[in-house]
């Protein structure tokens, strides 16, 4: 077995093939994720409006059951000290509290109700044929850039 490993030395793996091979799985997860986003209508402006108007349980059900599934998964991964397939131990960086989580959170909430989308659904909406959302996405990139430029003046 050792010889096989040497035959395919990492040196030959550099370049675009290597990049594709290591990153394609994330792309595939993204594809499935995007299909769920559109088919469960999470990317719909109307579903987000229903959520904020308390007229449908759908989005609460989606987010709630996603969080519960995520919690159980993270608990199990930690409990059994599972490693990633790359051999890396799984470690999640803790979130540190900063005032931005309130101020920025509110601003994002405003934007969420206006656009009917968080960053993920923006990409799915464009894919689903709403090409005008490209403008929304570019504006979101501009907003991110503006934060980078102004952050030293913000709490």
């Amino acid at each position: 077995m050792k010889t096989t490993v040497e035959e395919f030395s990492p040196v030959q793996e550099k370049g675009s093939t290597f990049l594709l091979r290591t990153h394609l799985p994330y792309g595939l997860v993204g594809v499935l994720f995007g299909i769920v986003f559109v088919k469960a209508e999470i990317v719909s402006w109307f579903r987000i409006q229903e959520m904020f108007r308390f007229t449908s349980f759908h989005m609460y059900g989606v987010i709630g059951s996603a969080v519960v599934t995520g919690m159980i998964s993270v608990f199990l991964l930690k409990k059994f000290r599972v490693k990633a397939i790359t051999g890396e131990p799984i470690a999640i960086a803790p979130k540190v509290f900063q005032p931005g989580q309130v101020y920025g959170g509110l601003l994002f909430g405003f934007g969420w109700a206006l656009t009917g989308a968080c960053p993920g659904p923006l990409f799915a909406q464009i894919g689903a044929g709403y090409s005008v959302v490209i403008v929304t996405l570019l504006s979101a990139i501009a907003g991110t850039w503006a934060y980078g430029a102004l952050r030293k003046y913000l709490p």
């Binding site: 979130k95 920025g104 656009t115 923006l122 979101a140 907003g143």
Partner: peptide, 23 residues
């Protein structure tokens, strides 16, 4: 809804350090 909303999404999520998925 597009330009102002999008800007708030981008600015707000970064200031908050994440969005619906990350937080």
């Amino acid at each position: 809804v597009t330009v102002v909303g999008g800007f708030l999404v981008g600015f707000g999520t970064r200031w908050a350090g994440g969005c619906t998925s990350g937080h």
